[in-house]
Design a binder for these strands. Structure first.
Lengths: 127, 127
DNA sequence: TTTCGTTATGTTTGCCGAAATATAACGTGG
DNA sequence: CCACGTTATATTTCGGCAAACATAACGAAA
């Protein structure tokens, strides 16, 4: 029989960053930003939704675009609504792969995470 | 210059951090420091090996010790060799669990990582 | 041609975390 | 008891990164 109550000890957030050489890093922030862009069709709106300045959001986009073979975000300025941005096919693929990596890690790492959770809350039972 | 040799393009460094509430974070830095302590029997020596000040190393140890039910590092001062430190049983368990988490993620995430690698190097396969 | 919201980019300011610096306690062995 | 190397901790200094501020270009529609 399993534990009647799973530890309310807020599950830790598992953050995965992959760093290539230089300052090229893909992590949770860029992934969330990409989702925001896909949802809103705008870099600034996506940034606002995350509570970051447009400049910062744009910088992240710029970095992302330069660290893959093809740009992940395509943008245009001017026009009826001022402009906009959307994920390229490469962008959608990168986002999907990153989310898949997260999910696979969370699943495969579940036992290890459980052991760590046990070590956080008092462990009175042996190993 | 504790920078490990930059990983080849096909193998980015996979960094996993688990953040519990507050500022409590377990990541690659603390794990490496724990290994250094286990190896050298000293906080300061472990810190030196990583190119960090004793103070910073001690701060990390202090944080680690306070974020689990039991301290991960036990230390003593004075004595023949001035003092020393070693991993507690809890420390060894945490370290092992963290390494297991890393390994499981790397293995389970291999397909996703491969997809990302393909998107980094130019793939001019039309679609 | 004016308006509007966005993309795009430069410059300055400010702040926080890390480093540097200083000091104390400790305890075994010579 | 003194020296040594370490743990332990407070205070100050400093650099880098992010926020804040500023400005320009753009293009469709009114």
């Amino acid at each position: 029989m399993a534990e009647p109550s799973d530890t309310p000890d807020s599950a830790p957030r598992l953050r995965i960053r992959l760093s290539y050489g230089d300052g090229q890093v893909m992590g949770p922030g860029k992934a969330e930003l990409m989702e925001g862009i896909a949802r809103t069709g705008s870099i600034s709106a996506a940034g606002r939704a995350m509570g970051m300045s447009y400049k910062r959001a744009w910088q992240l986009v710029d970095t992302m675009n330069s660290m893959f073979a093809n740009p992940l975000v395509s943008s245009s300025r001017g026009g009826a609504k001022g402009g906009g941005a959307h994920l390229t096919e490469a962008g959608e693929e990168v986002l999907a792969a990153y989310r898949a990596l997260e999910e696979a890690s969370r699943t495969a790492g579940a036992p290890a995470l459980a052991r760590l959770a046990a070590l956080r809350s008092d462990m009175s039972d042996g190993k």
